[in-house]
């Protein structure tokens, strides 16, 4: 177990290092998010109530759009120069590789949201009555769900041909997550993070557990040659 943790840390370290150095993917991701934020906020004549209702939906749409290239990126790096075979041949279990890739994706999504959320709320001047706490909780759970589906599907290698293929496969699977996240955000903005909010949060948590477990089971077979 200690050994697995050790390997997990070094794979994560390697992934983050390569991602930090290949700046292209990051800029696409962040730019996509910013474009949606700006387009949404520029509609200055839209009523404040309308913005309050739609900000959750648009925020998560922006995160989703920005996340698509990210989901494939971790594996695109491995496909170069046959690195994937090189990694599979090392004494590391598939589940450890999966968790490392998942952690890298969750982290990347978190960084993206740290940038997008303030941008969305500041530019559209929608107030956040309950503070950022409930939103952070939603983001955390939603990130794990988005990343677990993205990592599992990304490793199937079907996204190899084009990003569009990945969207077709991932979008229907992620609808409940995006729905729950958008609904939670709307409730937070409306200032009633009460019982209904918790129910949606529970749905996200169940989704996380289910899809991380499925990813762990499927990763080994999905990544075979």
């Amino acid at each position: 177990m200690r050994h697995a943790m050790h390997n997990l840390c070094w794979i994560l370290h390697k992934d983050l290092l390569t991602e930090l150095r290949s700046r292209g993917a990051w800029s696409t991701m962040v730019l996509t998010g910013i474009v949606v934020a700006v387009i949404f906020s520029v509609q200055s004549e839209a009523a404040a109530a309308y913005k309050q209702q739609t900000i959750g939906c648009l925020l998560w749409m922006a995160v989703f759009l920005a996340a698509i290239p990210m989901m494939d990126r971790g594996f695109a790096i491995e496909r170069e120069n046959g690195c994937w075979d090189g990694l599979r041949q090392l004494p590391v279990a598939g589940s450890v590789i999966f968790i490392a890739k998942l952690a890298a994706n969750v982290l990347a999504l978190g960084i993206l949201e740290c940038l997008l959320m303030p941008l969305f709320f500041v530019l559209s001047s929608v107030p956040l009555p309950g503070g950022a706490g409930p939103l952070v909780l939603v983001a955390l759970l939603a990130n794990i769900a988005l990343a677990s589906v993205g990592t599992t599907v990304g490793c199937l290698g079907v996204g190899r041909r084009s990003g569009a293929a990945l969207v077709v496969l991932v979008l229907p699977l992620l609808i409940p997550v995006l729905l729950a996240a958008a609904e939670c955000t709307r409730l937070t903005v409306a200032g009633n993070a009460g019982e209904v909010y918790w129910r949606w949060l529970q749905l996200l948590a169940v989704f996380d557990v289910l899809f991380v477990a499925a990813g762990l089971v499927l990763f080994e077979t999905a990544s075979e040659e």
């Binding site: 599992t152 599907v153 199937l156 290698g157 079907v158 699977l173 899809f211 499927l218 077979t221 999905a222």
Partner: peptide, 15 residues
């Protein structure tokens, strides 16, 4: 690929 996606899909439906 088909098996993995079908399993993910069938898990998704109750959600």
């Amino acid at each position: 690929v088909g098996a993995a996606l079908a399993i993910l899909g069938s898990l998704d439906i109750p959600m």
